[in-house]
Amino acid sequence: MSFRKRVKKNVPQVALHSIMSLVVGTYKTGKTRLWKEVTELHYKDPEEAMLLAFEAGYETWELDNFIPVHEGYTIEEKPNKTGELWEVWDYFRNVVVKGLVDEAKEERIVKLLGIDTADRAIDAATAFVLHQQGKKYGKTFASPQEISESTDVNGWVLIYEELKRQVDALRDAGYGIMTLAWTKEKETTLYDGKKYNSIELMMSNTGKKVFESQASLICCLHNEVNILDREGNELDDNVTDKKGRKIASNFHETKTVMYFRPSEYVSIAGGRYTDLPEKVDYSAENFMEVFENAVKGQLKKTKTDVAKLDKQQEEKRDQKIKEIAKEEEAAKSFNELAAEVDSEVMRLRKAKKASQIGKPFTELFGNPNNYKESTDVEALTKALEIAKAIQ
């Protein structure tokens, strides 16, 4: 088989819901507000964007389509619910993710999912892993490190795999994901002893491997302060007193800006696009303008209109998930058939009649026991008929 058959041409995805994006900022910088305003601006149908809330940051906003994941199961869904944090992730993975994936196989309603915030989602996933490992080993674990130190598995790897498994399931089902996350100021010491402060993600490296590494666009919300004089004019230098000493001004203004490229202070910004400004003023309109210009900047050779390209790529995404659904259904069919054949074989062995299926099973599978690994629905169906006919 020639590798040339696998050579393809890639056309950049042009829709906001075709990528993973990351909007970050410290507390109360407007992450949830930006989600609300961007999705309302970009999607005519409110159901096309859904916020998965791992915290109650939505309480002051009018939102048309969100799930309070942080509340976990309702009493109706799980009468014996404990209200513990691990149940939040249990609910997310077994109800929300599964439901969205199943819905996409039929008809995908939602296009873009928001995760608010990734930090709270990681907390819930961590609690879930600690709970599961505690049940497995019959003890209580206080941290992923404790799992690593007292078992033969790495606690951090388990959390990474659990997070990635759910995010990948949503991405494979055709959903775009915009993740909201917290930042912090971090002091870094270089090899020569020099130190500097920068704005970084608050989450651990485990979380960064799932959310930061996969994001094609990272926007950092940052509050910038302008120093003013009494008349409201911006100052380039500090005010001085009558003796020439620099003093602090009594006047200033604070505004939120969106960084799309790293600066000397903001480290967590950027992405896979070349045409990105360093920063723009905070607004949904500016966010969408930056994204649209970034997309157009990647389409150097593609002559197709962006709107037409968006429609074509949307159709391909829907077709892909339907093909995956068919493959899963086929896999389910042969797995169920193989299990039924196995059940009949066990019945015949107990009745000491298994020798009667030896020849026909060899003709079907090459070896009487190969039915267990077979994916041939027709052969398995025939084998089941043969086994059931022997009484």
Rank of each mutant, 00 (worst) to 15 (best):
T304R: 12
A331G: 05
E344M: 10
R317Y: 10
V295I: 13
F334S: 08
E323W: 07
Q319E: 14
K320E: 08
D275E: 15
A330Y: 14
D305V: 01
E336F: 10
L309T: 03
A269F: 01
M288K: 13
R317L: 13
V290M: 02
L276P: 05
N286S: 00
S283V: 02
L276M: 12
K352Q: 08
N293D: 11
V341P: 02
N335D: 01
K350F: 05
P277R: 00
S343F: 04
A294N: 09
R317N: 06
I321F: 06
E289W: 05
S343Y: 08
P277L: 07
A330T: 15
D281V: 08
E315T: 14
K316T: 13
E328L: 12
S267M: 12
A284H: 04
D275P: 12
A284T: 11
F334W: 14
Q312H: 15
E278N: 05
G270P: 04
K279A: 09
F334K: 03
G270D: 06
A307F: 09
E314S: 13
Y273E: 04
A331T: 02
A269Y: 02
S343Q: 11
V341M: 01
F287W: 10
Y265D: 05
T302K: 12
K316H: 11
L337A: 11
F287A: 09
K303A: 11
G271M: 07
A338W: 06
S343R: 13
K320F: 07
